[in-house]
Amino acid sequence: MSIWLTIDNLGLTEGGTRIIDAVSLSLSAQRTLVLGPNGAGKSTLLRLIHGLLHPSSGALRWSQPLSQAMVFQRPVMLRTTALANVVYGLKLKGCTAHECDRRARQALAHVGLETLAKRPARLLSGGEQQRVALARAWALEPELLILDEPTASLDPASSREVERIINEIAAGGARILMTTHNLGQARRVAEEIVFIDRGRIAEQTPVAEFFKLPRTPAAQDFLQEEMP
């Protein structure tokens, strides 16, 4: 893929602390994973890219406008059915009631939840809720899907299922930008790793190379700690 986003000297300061410090980056891989220690600024970077936060300095340059959707670590479910949660997202983008319903059911089927469509979303298990969130994002047919630690609070089985869905969405052509603490997952999903440390980009490396031989000492330390 050609470069789809260029980040130019991006900075975010909050209460005198530089959370994102002069980040410059070009993203061209279809599946990019952002790794780094806790508090490095991974989630913040994703939120800046998604537009939930406004940078204090610098700019994002999109090569072409991309429709986006985001999935969060903790799925936010409205107090209604699983189906209505997916429909809600579609309605905001604008579609007829019938069309919304059809696309929502299709998305739920993709994540394997068609039988739970009429269940109250809040009473589903954590893993099922995250799959509803994925269906809600998927139904929007985004060109860029951003995921902030989507499996961090899930058990291994649910994590694998979520990972399978992410791969399937990617297979449909969407760009994936994601953070995770699960290095195995990173290795399976990513093409390219962006390693971030204390608000700065430490390195940007193809995935195989990163896990074999990280270039920076920070990334080396990180891998050693995470994979003893």
């Binding site: 939120r47 998604h50 939930l52 959707a69 985001m70 969060f72 936010v76 809600y88 997202g89 905001l92 983008k93 809600r136």
Partner: peptide, 11 residues
């Protein structure tokens, strides 16, 4: 609790 999700969906 909902802010980011709702804004992400474009509400």
């Amino acid at each position: 609790e909902y802010r980011e999700q709702l804004r992400s969906l474009g509400a």
